[in-house]
Design a protein around this nucleic acid. Structure first.
Lengths: 191, 191
DNA sequence: GCTATTTCTTAAACAAGATTAAGGAAATCA
DNA sequence: TGATTTCCTTAATCTTGTTTAAGAAATAGC
């Protein structure tokens, strides 16, 4: 729990009332590798804080291919915000890539915090803004760079992830096939 | 000005104190076609509300090609949030595609509103969340659909934009060349 | 209303990345 | 530890989308 409080304190420190309000609403859960926090068609019920382990959030195209939208490791938040906020069936999956420990907060509890403690509104706004910025940079890069450049950039920007993830997952995040990533890696190693 | 207040009222209505706080901080500006609200290298100083007209926000790749990240027409907000929040030089341009009228709010005024009127924090959080959701759907679509499908989807999702924008701008938004969009349009017309 | 600029289209040659198939190396699980 | 599943690589072939070039149509600006 202290992990979450510490993460909040980076933006706007919480007083003890706010801290209690938050921690009393968090539910700890252990998730095994390959288990799902969310599956297509379900409504996303929780905003999830990753205390330990690693998750991917992805969509599946008509042909059955997975496309990773994001990863979350220790101290990240993950959820399908569209489904959570608008209470509509998700188009996405959230799956554990490792044995993990998470803290869940339900939508109604989150709304309670927003209404009664403006600081949470503020903190979550910053969290989502950062995710928005990341996504925008990624979209621009997808349009303006080759797969080779995007891979190099990924290694630089997320060294902690690239050590930890299988290349199949990285390929899916970059929007290419594992075979093509393999080709890129060979080319890179020969330079 | 009433246009902005009306847009806020959709989420969380403003009382007269909040309304005054907002409107007293807005600066009206007329922008001619092809003029810039933001250029690469500059720090984005304003959150911009479009009262009339149309803008594109885009990045330019090393080869000199423009890539449209978003459009904004009447009642939309536009800014490079990364540059605005982190006060770093922007990688993007915001350019008027038509003669336009906007309301600008500076970062410091926006921060003032956030601090003194939690409702604004709330309202802007929702605005940014919606943009985040849109961006996530778009990234997933970019990875999982063909250009043909993305074009059809664009026409459906933004009929108001597709009537108003030249196809060159739509092509750039879809991540393809105008020549290829032309090919797609021909194929579509023959179906 | 006239001119300059931008936009749209076509087509041929080309490149980036996908697909298919298959074998070997690594993890994971029981 | 042995069995099973996942992961990584290679190579040939195929597809989607790019590039280059050039002419015609539409629009903006004066």
């Amino acid at each position: 729990m202290e992990q979450i409080v510490a993460q909040f304190n980076k933006y706007l420190p919480l007083n003890s009332r706010e801290k209690d309000a938050l921690t009393s609403r968090l539910v700890e859960k252990t998730i095994k590798r390959k288990q799902f926090l969310l599956q297509e068609g379900d409504v996303c019920k929780y905003f999830v804080f990753v205390s330990k382990g690693c998750f991917k959030m992805y969509g599946v195209s008509q042909s059955g291919t997975e496309h990773n939208l994001s990863f979350a490791i220790e101290n990240d938040w993950i959820a399908d915000i569209d489904s959570l906020h608008n209470e509509r069936p998700s188009k996405l999956y959230i799956e554990a890539l490792e044995h993990s420990v998470v803290y869940l907060i339900s939508k109604s509890d989150l709304w309670h915090l927003y209404s009664n403690y403006p600081k949470f509104d503020r903190n979550f706004r910053v969290t989502i803004e950062n995710k928005y910025i990341e996504l925008q940079n990624r979209l621009l890069q997808t349009f303006s760079s080759t797969a080779y450049e995007r891979y190099e950039n990924f290694l630089e920007q997320y060294p902690n992830l690239s050590n930890r993830l299988p290349n199949t997952q990285i390929a899916s995040y970059l929007g290419i096939t594992p075979e093509f990533l393999s080709k890129i890696r060979k080319e890179k190693s020969m330079k």
